[in-house]
Design a binder for these strands. Structure first.
Length: 286
DNA sequence: CTCGGCCTGCTC
DNA sequence: GAGCAGGCCGAG
């Protein structure tokens, strides 16, 4: 579900809601969520994780690509929300959101009881998300192979060109590949390609320098704008205060198959590219 | 590099 | 009942 703008929005809200609070009790209901790899009996590891979290203070919340990192002194808790992962922070007196079930429900897989009566719930219908408790010194290894942050100084037009150079895979597939650039997902890849006027099927190695420059700028722009609008809510995405995003109203092609292109008015096309539903304007994007 | 698998729920 | 959904990993 969440791509970089949604994860960044979650990070900002969490910082405000749970930054500085201490974990009084942790309950991991779905041990698989924290499994490094498949094992017979995950329950002991789950209980171990809960014990390790107990008593720790959340010093801050960072983001790397689509990962959230809760800093716990010498350790950290890394959370990836997969497709349908959600984090909700409930403080005493918070009104429940009418569109959402009362928590914890059957899809709530991790509960952190924090100081000040605050509770943090991890909810994930499809259970594609992952949680990992890590010593800080192992963080570099954990993120080994992840490409540059698209909004950081390491992501330049030349770096993008390098990631596309000589590749036969479609530019869409390469934008989704987190080794090339880390944080774009299906929605923002389509939106960036539209803004850069590049057809998603174009082989990466075929992009001209000018196209790569446009794509680099377009990716950054769309991510920045989406953060400003607090992300995109199509179905599952809510921030930890149960607020929906606002960028769904500003999508130009994603989810708009058959509707007029906002630039030329011809219908937006949809097809499978890189095994994902892909939306583009065949007239504007070449 | 592409495909299938991981999961559940919703829409056609 | 089939197909689809904002992600990622490992097998071939």
């Amino acid at each position: 579900m969440p791509e970089l703008p949604e994860v960044e929005t979650i990070r900002r809200v969490l910082e405000k809601k749970i930054g500085g609070l201490t974990i009084l009790r942790a309950e991991l209901r779905a041990p698989k969520l924290a499994a490094a790899r498949l094992a017979r009996d995950l329950k002991p590891a789950a209980d171990m994780l809960a014990r390790r979290l107990q008593g720790r203070t959340i010093l801050g919340i960072r983001r790397r690509a689509k990962y959230l990192i809760l800093d716990l002194d010498r350790d950290e808790l890394i959370v990836h929300l997969g497709m349908t992962g959600q984090l909700f922070a409930a403080a005493p007196g918070d009104k429940p959101c009418r569109d959402l079930p009362a928590l914890p429900d059957k899809h709530t897989h991790l509960i952190l009881e924090l100081s000040d009566g605050v509770r943090l719930f991890y909810r994930d219908i499809r259970k594609f998300g992952r949680i990992r408790f890590l010593e800080k010194k192992r963080e570099t290894d954990f993120f080994e192979g992840l490409g540059p942050e698209p909004l950081g100084p390491d992501f330049t037009p030349d770096v993008l060109r390098e990631g596309l150079k000589g590749k036969t895979a479609s530019v869409k597939a390469l934008l989704l590949n987190q080794r090339v650039v880390a944080g774009l997902g299906n929605i923002y890849a389509d939106e960036a390609l539209f803004r850069a006027r590049i057809a998603p099927q174009t082989p990466g190695g075929r992009l001209t320098r000018a196209q790569a420059v446009r794509l680099h700028a377009a990716a950054r722009e769309v991510l920045c704008e989406a953060i400003r609008f607090r992300g995109t809510t199509r179905s599952d995405y809510y921030d930890p205060e149960s607020r929906r995003g606002g960028f769904q109203f500003r999508l130009r092609v994603y989810g708009r198959a058959g509707e007029p292109c906002p630039v030329c008015g011809r219908p937006v096309a949809k097809a499978v590219v890189a095994q994902r539903g892909t939306h583009w304007c065949p007239h504007c994007q070449r």
